[in-house]
Write a protein that binds this DNA or RNA. Structure first.
Length: 254
DNA sequence: ATGGCATAATTGTTATGA
């Protein structure tokens, strides 16, 4: 069994103790992280003592992704293109599995320059996945996609209608990735659930459960067939100094 | 009314997130 967790930590330095506890409690084979908000050299060494190797693609102040794994990774790839200015994508091969940690641009506001960048980034992700992988590999693309794919992923679809994270064009761009043959593991196993993975820090977002589901593990067909469980670890959003995202977990019988 | 809170880079304020 292979257990994989993805988590947008919103600063790995601020979430260090929580991340260590998560590894100790959940013992995932792979932990994909987003929004490290630190450079490679500043990434904590603490995870080695817990038996994990870190593959880091950091950046000063913003972005930054990493993959922690119990076994040694190979075939490390960083960045969505050679010209991408942001550290938003890293992938590794671990055993017979290829794992991605992705932090899709937020987009800020529908129609803005950042929104255009978000859409183009998703297109690049689609073409990268299309060209890089074949159907006889095990591939999982995890991370913060900054898109709520359907109204049931949104606490108040009327309030969020056509807003950033929920607009028609972002949802279409997300579906084009799905259409390559990828499956949203949590949704496959919980078709009617209204659980969320992100809640705004402001306005009692978490206590009111005003959330969105924007963090996913997307498995290709061969791997999705092996998915036996998927959960959102919403307990992690409670207590002192939480990230605004909860970790999302999936287990695969491979 | 487009705020609120959190974080990093900096020390008073701005950029960004979602």
């Amino acid at each position: 069994m292979v257990k994989i967790i993805t988590w947008n930590v919103n600063s790995i330095k601020m979430r260090l103790e929580r991340a260590k506890r998560l590894l100790e409690n959940e013992k995932p084979d792979i932990l994909c992280l987003q929004e490290l908000k630190c450079v490679d050299d500043a990434f904590p060494k603490d995870f080695e003592a817990l038996g994990y190797t870190a593959t880091v693609f950091g950046q000063k102040t913003y972005n930054g992704v990493a993959i922690l794994s119990k076994t040694q990774p190979s075939h490390i790839q960083r960045g969505i293109t050679s010209s991408d200015p942001d550290s938003r994508l890293v992938s590794v091969q671990i055993g017979n599995l290829i794992a991605y940690s992705a932090y899709i641009p937020n987009g800020q506001a529908v129609g803005s320059d950042k929104y255009v960048y978000k859409l183009s980034w998703l297109e690049k992700l689609e073409s990268l996945l299309k060209s890089r992988h074949t159907s006889d590999e095990y591939v999982v693309v995890t991370g913060d996609f900054n898109v709520a794919p359907e109204d049931k992923d949104v606490h108040d679809p009327i309030q969020w209608k056509d807003q950033i994270l929920c607009s028609v064009d972002e949802r279409k761009a997300f579906q084009k990735v799905i259409a390559l043959g990828y499956t949203d593991c949590f949704r496959k196993l919980h078709p009617d659930s209204n659980e969320y993975s992100w809640w705004d820090y402001r306005n009692l977002g978490f206590p009111m459960n005003n959330g969105l589901r924007i963090d996913f593990l997307l498995a290709n067909q061969k791997l999705a067939e092996k998915c036996v469980s998927s959960t959102i670890l919403r307990e992690e959003r409670k207590g002192e100094k939480p990230s605004d995202h909860a970790p999302v977990c999936a287990e695969f019988d491979i």
